[in-house]
């Protein structure tokens, strides 16, 4: 049971926030993270068109032997991605909490530019309170 990391991807597919909480995943360069986030954005766009009946929410969970990737898509197209161990259960609630914190501390902050990297201190603090300090 571990939470490895959190990403926030803007509606254009750019990674605006990336944080690591526990060891267990490969060390990546910040460029790799950007590429991965862009790829995930593309895959998500494809999966949301795969449904044979009507529209679909797109991929919600990617699961592997060693980790699980939980994706939460907001109504405005921002994606929150939580990378956890496969056994982790309450990811959906955690992601909703992250969205809560995001809309309070980031969207209500006059010094944040929408769609740009998140450099809001209060967001960092509250996320730390939720998942523990960065690993």
């Amino acid at each position: 049971m571990a939470i490895f990391g959190l990403w926030v991807i803007n509606k254009a597919g750019g990674l605006v926030y990336q944080r690591k909480f526990a060891d267990g995943l490969a060390q990546l360069s910040s460029n790799d993270y950007l590429v991965l986030a862009g790829t995930l954005h593309g895959i998500h766009a494809i999966t949301s068109r795969l449904s044979p009946v009507g529209s679909s929410s797109g991929a919600q969970v990617f699961e592997s032997e060693s980790f699980k990737m939980n994706i939460f898509l907001t109504a405005t197209g921002t994606k929150f991605v939580l990378i956890t161990s496969p056994a982790e259960m309450s990811c959906d609630q955690a992601l909703v909490r992250v969205y809560d914190i995001y809309s309070d501390t980031v969207m209500k902050n006059p010094f944040h530019t929408p769609e740009m990297p998140i450099r809001t201190e209060a967001f960092d603090t509250k996320i730390s309170a939720l998942f523990g300090p960065s690993g």
Partner: peptide, 14 residues
């Protein structure tokens, strides 16, 4: 409550 002033404007108080 939800305002985080960036470091380069530290002395600003809303």
């Amino acid at each position: 409550r939800y305002i985080s002033v960036p470091k380069d404007m530290k002395q600003l108080s809303c």
